[in-house]
Design a protein around this nucleic acid. Structure first.
Lengths: 149, 149, 149, 149
DNA sequence: TATGAATGAGTATTCATTCAT
DNA sequence: CATGAATGAATACTCATTCAT
C-alpha cells in the first residue's frame, strides 16, 4: 500500500509535467525533482520511462471505465436518451477533472507514434467496445429499430 | 535558386518523416539519408533542427495563404455564401494534398510545447486574422446584419 | 555465534554465485536473495562488497592452512617424499572439495586487478611461505643436500 | 582505411587498459581519454562496449591464425617434429609480443562468463580445429602410426 | 538483530552540431 | 557548395550503500 502511494505520487508528477512539456522533454529527473524523490526511486516502481507512460495511459482508461461503469450499471435510467445523457455528462465531468490526462491522450500520445501506437489502439478499441456494448444492450432492449447504423 | 531547390528537397524529406515518426524520433541524419545528401549539408540551409520545424510550419501557412488569397482576391464571387463555399472547398483540397503537413500541425506540433508554442500561436493568430478580415470586409459590404456574433 | 553462522551463510551464497557469474555480475542483492536474507543484513556482517570478496579469499587461505598444518604437524611422516605426497594429496582433495573457491581464486580474482591485487599477492606470498618454511625445516632436518635449488 | 586506423587505435587503447584493469573497471571514457578521442567517436566504430570486447578476442584469434597459417603453409618443414617445433616457437613469440591479449584471453575473459562464454568457446574450438587438422594431415602423411591417441 | 525502501554517484549511450577537407 | 568524421552535452538507467522502523 505504501508502494502504491509512491507509484501514484510519481504518476501524478509525471502526468503534470508530460501534459505541459511533452514526453521527450519531460526527463525522469524532472519528474523526481517535482515529487521530491531520489532518481533511483523511480526504477523501484517503473521498469523504465516507457513503462511510466503506458501506466499513465492505462490509468486514464481505468479511471474512465469506473465512471462509465458507474453510469451503465446504475439501473435508474429508464430510457436510452437519459442514459446517454448521463454517460456524456459523466464523461464530460471526467474530462474536465482530468484535463492533464486528456491533454496527454489527445496531444502528446500522437507524437510518439512507434512506441505507443499499439497501446493507444488497444485503448481506443476498449473505449469503442464499451459504447458498442451499450448500444447492443439498447438494441436488444428494443430502443432502436433494427434498420439503423 | 539551386539553394532554394536543396532547401525544399530537405523540407520535403523532413515533412514526410516527421509526419510519420514525430519530431523527436526523426533525426537530422534520417532526413539527410532520405534525401540522399550529406549530413553537413543540412546546416547550410537551416540554422538547426528547430529552424527546420519552424520552416515547415511557416511553409504550411504560406501555402494556405496562397490558396486563401487566390480565393479572396478573385472578384468573381458575388455573394458571401459562394465565397465561403469556395474557400472551404479550396481549404479542403489543400488539406487533402498536404496530409503530411496537417498531420504535423495537428498531431506533432502539440507534443513539442515549449519550443514551438509561440510559433503555433502566431500561426493560429494569422489564420484567424484572415478569416476575421474577410468577415469584416463582408460586413462592410453589407452581407451581414450588425447584430450577429 | 549466531552472527558467525549468518556470516558463513552469506559467504557460502556469495562463493557460489561469484564462482558462477564473476564478481561484478554478482550483485549484493543476488547474494541475499540466494540465502534468503534482507538486503540490509549484509552490512551487519560485512563492511562492503569488497570486504566480502576479501573474506572469501581469506577463508580460502585459512581452510588451506588447516589442511597443510594438519599434514605438517602430523609427526607420522618419516621421510620427505611421503610428506610431500601427503601434502599434495590433501591439497588435491581440498581443491576438489572447494571447486568454487578455486574457480574464484584462479579465474575471478585476476579480473579484478586494482582492488584485489594486493590481497592476492599477500595470499600468494603466504602460500609460498608455507612451502618455503617446510622446505627449510626439511633442509635443517637433513633431508636435502645443501647444493640444491 | 582512415576508419580502420581509428578502430585499431581504439582497439589498442582498450587492449592495454582492459589487460591492466579488467573489463568492468575499464570505462569507455577511460579508453577514449587514453587514445585522445571524443566519447562519441567510440560509437562510430563499435556498437557498444561488448562489441569492443568481442572485437579484441576476434583480433586475437585472427592474429594467431596468421602466425599459424604462415607456419603451416610453409612447405619447408620436412618432418613433423620440426613442423611442430616451428609452430610452438612462432606461437611462443606471438604470445610474448601480445602479452596484453594473452592477459585478456586468459585472465579477464573468464571473469565475464555469461556474455562472452559463447565467443570464448567458439574461439577455443577454432584453435583446436587447427591443431586437429594439422595432425590429420600429419597422420595422412604417414608421420604417425595409426594406433595412437 | 533484521529489513527493504530510498538514494545518488557513476556509466553507457545518443544525437544535434561543427569543421577540416 | 558538399561532405562525413569527430565531438560532448545531455539522459536513461544501475547498483552499492544507508537508515528509519
Amino acid at each position: 500500500m505504501k508502494g502504491e502511494l509512491r507509484k501514484n505520487q510519481i504518476l501524478d508528477g509525471a502526468k503534470k509535467l508530460i501534459a505541459r512539456n511533452g514526453y521527450y522533454q519531460t526527463h525522469v529527473e524532472d519528474i523526481l525533482r517535482e515529487v521530491k524523490l531520489g532518481k533511483g526511486t523511480f526504477y523501484l516502481y517503473f521498469k523504465n520511462k516507457e513503462d511510466l507512460f503506458i501506466s499513465i495511459l492505462e490509468r486514464f482508461l481505468d479511471d474512465w471505465e469506473k465512471i462509465v461503469l458507474k453510469a451503465t450499471t446504475d439501473p435508474s435510467y429508464k430510457d436510452l436518451q437519459s442514459y446517454f445523457q448521463a454517460l456524456i455528462t459523466r464523461s464530460h465531468n471526467f474530462f474536465k477533472l482530468n484535463e492533464e490526462l486528456c491533454n496527454i491522450y489527445l496531444r502528446i500520445g500522437p507524437g510518439i507514434n512507434d512506441i505507443f501506437e499499439p497501446y493507444i489502439e488497444r485503448f481506443e478499441q476498449k473505449m469503442l467496445n464499451y459504447v458498442t456494448d451499450e448500444l447492443k444492450k439498447a438494441v436488444q432492449a428494443g430502443f432502436f429499430r433494427k434498420d439503423m447504423d
